[in-house]
Amino acid sequence: MKTQELILIIEDDQAISKMVSLSLHQHGYKTLVAADIKSALRLIQTNSPDLIILDLGLPDGDGKGLIKTIRLELAIPIIVVSARHEEKEVIASLDSGADDYVLKPFSIDELLARVRSAQRRFLGLQPNVNVILCHELTLDIEHHLVLRKGESLKLTPTEFNLLKYFILHRNQVLPYPRILKEVWGVGYQSEMQYLRTYINTLRKKIEPDVARPIYIHTEMGIGYRFTCDTSNFD
């Protein structure tokens, strides 16, 4: 990695922050560690990091509040780390402005993949084009087409809109209410059965093996993630 980007790790457990810091170093990032909100705010002021990894369970306050404070001043990716069984917290922090999340216990590969894809999104490395490739899928926005291995897929208008929304927001966690609002419209945010049904039919049309999906991944209790990036699995 050519750039020496600075990542701020806000985490009160030393074992975790050490491990994360070590593996980020190995992948060419510079890191800073803050164990509480106070020192995190100080480090943000003095060092202007390029990305923040934030553990939601901090000793001196609420992580969501910190996200809002950071958002007021800085436009940088924030990745939230949380324990399982705290889906509500994760959703709330995504609403507060966090970009992505990982659940404890997480693998370093998972975290690195999140860091890379959050960075790409922020750096605008995904140019505005009319044709987007994703594994075997090709989305042609202008001609309202989706191809799989070169063959046109028969999709209903809603299926097409859903897939288009997914591909435009690929590699990024999309909470259920957000998908429903963006694809179906305001007022449909709680119509989960629509979403489940359409995900089911869409998977049957695009996934090689529905029980082992490679595109549409379910993030239980939170939302879906459309994966285009093979480097997510390395």
């Binding site: 059965q193 489940r196 089911n200 998977r203 029980a211």
Partner: peptide, 15 residues
């Protein structure tokens, strides 16, 4: 926490 569940989805997550 009751909601609409798709077993295909559930099996996918379990796998």
């Amino acid at each position: 926490r009751m909601e609409w569940c798709d077993f295909e989805d559930i099996v996918g997550v379990a796998l």
